[in-house]
Design a protein around this nucleic acid. Sequence first.
DNA 1: CTGAAAGCGCTTACAG
DNA 2: CTGAAAGCGCTTACAG
Lengths: 363, 363
Amino acid sequence: MAKRGSRPAGGRGGGAPEQEPPPRDRSKVTINDIARLANVSKKTVSRVINESPLVRSETRERVLTIIKQHGYTPDPQARALALRRSFLIGMIYDNPSPQYVVNMQRGILDELEDTSFQLVLRPCDRADPRFHEKIEAFVVQQKPFGVILPPSVSEDEKLAEMLRALNCDYVRIASVVLDEPARMVRTHDFEGAAAAARHIAALGHSRIAHIHGPKTFRSAHERLAGFRQGLAESAIELDKALTVEGGYTFESGVECAARLFRRKQRPTAIFAGNDEMAVGVYKAARDFGLKAPEDVSIVGFDDTPMASRVWPPMTTVRLPIRDMGRAAARLLLRQAAGVEPEELIAFKPELIIRESAAPPKNG
Amino acid sequence: MAKRGSRPAGGRGGGAPEQEPPPRDRSKVTINDIARLANVSKKTVSRVINESPLVRSETRERVLTIIKQHGYTPDPQARALALRRSFLIGMIYDNPSPQYVVNMQRGILDELEDTSFQLVLRPCDRADPRFHEKIEAFVVQQKPFGVILPPSVSEDEKLAEMLRALNCDYVRIASVVLDEPARMVRTHDFEGAAAAARHIAALGHSRIAHIHGPKTFRSAHERLAGFRQGLAESAIELDKALTVEGGYTFESGVECAARLFRRKQRPTAIFAGNDEMAVGVYKAARDFGLKAPEDVSIVGFDDTPMASRVWPPMTTVRLPIRDMGRAAARLLLRQAAGVEPEELIAFKPELIIRESAAPPKNG
DNA sequence: CTGAAAGCGCTTACAG
DNA sequence: CTGAAAGCGCTTACAG
């Protein structure tokens, strides 16, 4: 049985003598107490809390001192009710990679630390016919302060439109510019894939395959285009017959690579659209008795922990997911504060050269 | 600039004619509207919402119909303010494995789906001197409905005590019984490790090593004890010289295995306390020119995705993390509703036999 | 079984 | 620059 409300006075139950003096029960201090103690109206305390400039600095200092003295923190639920807006930041995602999800969460939480904002999770499925309806219900009921949309949720134009109509602030993380700078964190997937292509080409490969992600992901298009571009710089044309579509999953990586390996003219290098699929290529290679990098060079994208644990350690492209999450959260808070970003926030990927790509044997 | 409040009437901005009729703006329907329409007091509507038995069934039906008709959902912030308790479920964790964290989140979210509860994340660091203070601040400020504590946070007795003092409901997930059944989800790590031991022993090994997790994790003790017990059943005594402490990380797995491999009498099998360390053993084995399972059998614990992607596919022990998360959330909601569980909820691990363990060469 | 009053802890207009 | 009044949308005693 919940016994909320019968909270014993003093709070934390008689501490041992060697402990520091128990902090006063902060849960009881309200805006009224502060107002009374500071000899001002609660409205003035409210102004101080909300950093209104309409307070004499002397008054502000006095109030601030009392607040600190009593460890007062405004009640988020009460503020939410009055403001018709909660202090929850929603992360709405459908990304299948746990590593991506966790890193992004960490980044957002980094930025939210020591604020009164809380991170709330909304996993979802874009294939669900009630997808938009469910998110609308969430937004209407919880009135989140704002939401963060990583790919591929970020690419849903109807969702963005709905959020705007509901006056819900949001930040989209995507590999292409889909929105105004105040609502975008951009990743240069194109550049990352181009770097991978340059590296593979410089190694001397010419029969180069690419397993790209599903067409419903913009990143899949960007990485494909970037790869093609990087190859073109070395006067190599990406062979359509060696370009296949995977599902960003391990299994699809295995299948696509097997298909590639069954050709009479095998590719000597494979660039997979993400690490998951690249690890699938590792497996297919072993199934075909092929060694990496001697028989096939393999390059991935993401630099998940698996990339460095697998054998041989994987050459891949790294995007600073955690930093991206942090940037998205910061942008969201600034957006709410009315601060316009000077320029579009963007992240460049980095090529991580390890041991899975080498010159071709017969090169 | 946030434009909250200037929400246009009608909500979602003129839909195209082919769209379904726009749902009424649910954000505006309040308990007062329902009360007026149902011809009762708002208190009665409140009783219906809260499933109080003190309502004539006829009245309840009438109110329920109106509620459904207007798609009314009570405002969580307003309820929270009145109840002095929010509808947030906190997950407080320090588990280093992203896979564990994500699976547990999924389980909790499964159970919370279609309720008004939201999952809020609180990663933390038990080594932080302000650890308890920070969590206390979270609980006091957010007044979460309850919190879920996976290992090793669940093992912190001081934390549990603090939560009780603050009247905050919680559920602990741990490998040993630390609390009453209403507050515990137990995992039989002991059994899982014993099964691993039996499997290794049955394969014919006798020089068997164990890399256990840090002593600050109860699971490390349980797995060690279970492993010892499983071996004892085959009259094998766990060799102290072959029992080393790792940190549940890849790197520590590499180091510990290397130390083991440098001995004149190498172990023919290694049981690692988790998959991360087991993958470290894979690496060390390669560094020493040892092949698995021919030269060393390797067994892990957790069955992370990596276990099946690595070569050779890893024999390991699987705990149903997602189910555990779901069970923890369900228990928390029942606890709040005053329902006592009939018995302790517990999960048994399963041995997943793949290809990394085989009879010893010279066996 | 039902309701009118007061209150949860804040903020938004509106005055001054 | 500051404040008294009213309100956000619910619920808890208290009556009946």
